[in-house]
Every structure is written in structure tokens, then in C-alpha cells.
Design a protein around this nucleic acid. Structure first.
Lengths: 242, 242
DNA sequence: AAGTGGTCTAGACCACGTA
DNA sequence: ACGTGGTCTAGACCACTTG
């Protein structure tokens, strides 16, 4: 099974790929425990240290989570992950708070060229488009337009609009088996449209921050396009570089 | 020297802190080689694997760089580091290019309250303020206002304005012994001022992206405040989240 | 050939969580 | 008491770089 020949890829990398494959296939679901390092070592015929090195890299990629004394678990989305890894808006003092959200619309539509291209869909495909307003401390701060391919997100968008939770990535994971692992964000400054201005309580033409995010699964399949328009009157987008 | 008692911090952490201290003190300068893992292990009376684990974490923090067959080196700033870790503007196709820069002014001034607070300076301190325009493919794309404390950056700003290189962090490192290790960025959308508009070739009031960056050394001392105003007509700020 | 980092092993003991 | 991950050791061999 494992390639121990000369010029081959290292053992721990093969094990890492193997574990990754099992997770991607769904053998081990988010939140569930995986076999112990010793068990995996025996099963795969390598030493515990080699399994450990493979797991360590997956932990660094936020794919697995270790809990001393308990075991190693497949990471799942919770409020903390949403806040620390996928939400970058802070108030003027640098404090992060996850905003509330209120859904405006949730409808099936034909994908625009942009949406189809970003989500790698064929032309003229149906998508679900959700529009919601997010508020921090009771004040409307951002408008989100979320586009999801119809395929994995079957019934979503056929009614049941008001039942959408605040943290969507948890829903994707628990209800559709889709785990968001990373996201690419592109930011620019644009003028608030009439629609933006009304919802955010701004003058038309006020500069707002547009965040265009493509969310990806572990195997880098794009599964969500999210365009946010954010008032930066009392909030910033925050990023730390190393 | 090392604490091997019970409830104490782990050995490799102590070694990591020790190596970090030597680098921060300047015992080992950026770009120079550090002793081999075996030598450090003998010197410190631990096994090579323990030193290795300490070094691994410093490599992950971009403090050290390993080169197989050669040794382990203190990381230094080069064009690649500037581009991959500290520059986030891409063109509409997602391509990164480091812009050219033209210095407009470079003067000694009294720090504003904002500058003094961010750079942790006492009131009424002198700082060096640099203003420059950065161009991509010949087109002015961003205006940068850079504020440096007078203290470590002695003669900078007393003449010699035109000799400033494109990548300033390299200069800080080689000429002043200041290594930028991380940076915090806060982004918002604002309207272009008359000054901004003229330099960027935009209409007054056009939304531009303002990036306020505080650059930190390894021991988290803030040493530079950089406010950039960026036209997002043909460029984005790009960020990947995990 | 000698020295460096990179991988892998086998085994020891510690700290934590559960039963 | 037992199983888990966390730390540490000692030693082997490989891959790469330099003299």
C-alpha cells in the first residue's frame, strides 16, 4: 500500500494524503474521532512518530484537532472558527463580534456569467441566491449576497427562508455534508448604490468596502460566492500578516 | 540553564525562547547561519530531535529558514517576502506585482496624536514622515504615507530623500538593524481627497481603499505606521483565509 | 568525504481525561 | 487503571551541498 521505494515521496506525506482522502470521502465526518496514533501506526505498518508527523501537518491546516487525553478529531465549524478564521470585521477598537443576520430574499435564479465562472458551473445553471443584512450592536453594517450551486444544496432556496442560521458554514456542514476549509477574498472600495445606501443607512455614493469571497472545500472546489458590502464608518476589515 | 523540573515549560519551548532571544538581541543577524542542530544539541545538553522541534516552530513563524545540506539561517527580507507576506494588492486577474515607487516628500515632523499612540511614543515627539506614490505598469495606483519614529531611524529624513529603495523593509533591516516580522492591517473605504484624486488620476470623492498598517518587530514593538490609499479601479486587495 | 538538514524507528516517561 | 496525545531520547539512514 505505502511506497517505501527510493526516490518516492516521504512516508508521512503518503499517510497525510491517505488521511486527507478518508476525510474528503466522508469516512470520518467532521466532529468525529479518528483512530489513535498507535492504532494508525499498526494498521499502516509504520512507527507512531511517522503517523504523528502526518497528523501534525493536518492539525496545522485546521483539518484535524488534537485533544490531549481524548484523541484526534476531524475539525468542524463552530462559532469560534467562523469568528477567528472567516470573519475579519472589527469595530474601531479592534474587537470582533459576529453580527446578527436577517434574510431579505432567498430564491432560485439563473447564474450570472460571473457566478457560473467563479463556481465552475456550466452556462444557464440554476443557483440559490440569498440576500441578507448583518447587524452589529443593532446597527446594519453589511449586506451579503450569497450564491450557492443548486447541486449539493438541493432543497435550499425552495421555501424555508426564515430558518437560515446566522453561521451558514455550520449549516452547510451538518445539513449538506459540505465543509468549508478555506476562502479567497478580494476587497475593493465602491460607491454605495441606492439599495446599499437605504439598507445601511448611508447617503448614496458613500464609499463602502466590497468583499468578494469564494469559499472552498478541502479539495479546493468552490462552493459559495459571497459578496458583502460593508459600511466602514464604525468598522474595519482587519488582517494580520506574517 | 535549562529547567528540567516537573511542572515546568517543555524543553523545546525553552530552547525556542532562547534562540529567539539570541536573534532578537542581534547575536545572529538576518541572513547569517546559526549553529547546526547537532552543535546546538551538544551545547544545550539535549538531543538533536528536541532542538529540531524548537527550530521547526521558528521556521513556521518565518523567523528561521532551513536549507538542506547547507544549514539553518535567520530569515531576512527580500523581494519575495515583501511580495508574498506583506503585499496584498493584485490586478483583476489575481496576479501580484510589486509596484515601483516615487518619493514625494520625506521630512521630520512632530508626531500627530494618532502616530504617537500607534507607535507608542511620548507626546510632541519628532518622527520622519515619507509620502510616496506607487505605480503598477506605469499607472499610479496607491499613495503611501509612512511614519517612522526618529529613534531607531536616526539620519533618515535629514536629506537623502531620493535614495530610498522600493522595498523599505530591506532598508530597515540592513541599515538600521530593524527586522519587520509581522504587521496588522485595518482596511476601510473612504472618498478620495483632492490630493488623492490628483495623484491617482481619479475624480474627487471616488471610493478608494485605505489600508492602515502597523509593522511590528519580533518582540511586537511597533516601528512603522503606513497609511495607503489605493485605487481599486483595476486592482484588488487579496487575502486567503484558512 | 564530511557536514548539513530530512525522514524514520523504537522505546521511555509525562499530562490529561475517562471509567 | 488505562488509553490518549505530548515530550524526549538515541540512533539509523537518506538527500543535498561543499570542499
Amino acid at each position: 500500500m505505502l511506497d517505501t521505494g527510493k526516490g518516492s515521496i516521504s512516508l508521512y506525506m503518503q499517510i497525510k494524503d491517505l488521511l486527507l482522502a478518508r476525510i474528503t470521502k466522508g469516512d470520518w465526518l467532521p466532529g468525529s474521532i479518528i483512530p489513535s496514533e498507535m492504532n494508525l501506526a499498526h494498521e499502516l505498518g509504520v512507527s507512531q512518530g511517522t503517523v504523528r508527523k502526518a497528523i501534525t501537518e493536518l492539525v496545522e491546516n485546521n483539518v484535524l484537532t488534537r485533544r490531549q487525553g481524548k484523541g484526534t478529531f476531524v475539525s468542524n465549524h463552530d462559532v469560534n472558527r467562523a469568528l477567528f478564521h472567516f470573519f475579519h470585521i472589527t469595530d474601531n477598537k479592534g474587537h470582533k463580534v459576529l453580527p446578527d443576520s436577517r434574510v431579505l430574499t432567498c430564491r432560485r435564479k439563473i447564474a450570472t456569467r460571473k457566478e457560473a465562472s467563479v463556481l465552475q458551473l456550466p452556462g444557464e445553471t440554476e443557483v440559490t441566491r440569498i440576500e441578507r443584512v448583518r447587524s452589529i450592536a443593532g446597527k446594519a453594517t453589511m449586506i451579503e449576497t450569497i450564491t450557492l450551486p443548486a447541486d449539493p444544496f438541493g432543497e435550499l432556496g425552495k421555501g424555508s427562508e426564515d430558518e437560515l442560521p446566522n453561521t451558514l458554514y455550520e449549516l452547510y456542514e451538518t445539513r449538506y455534508g459540505i465543509t468549508i476549509h478555506s476562502a479567497d477574498e478580494q476587497l475593493r472600495a465602491i460607491a454605495a448604490s441606492k439599495h446599499d445606501a437605504r439598507l445601511l443607512g448611508l447617503e448614496v455614493g458613500t464609499p463602502v468596502l466590497e468583499i468578494e469571497r469564494v469559499a472552498l472545500t478541502l479539495d479546493k472546489t468552490p462552493v459559495e460566492l459571497r459578496v458583502s458590502r460593508c459600511s466602514t464608518k464604525n468598522h474595519y476589515y482587519h488582517n494580520t500578516c506574517f
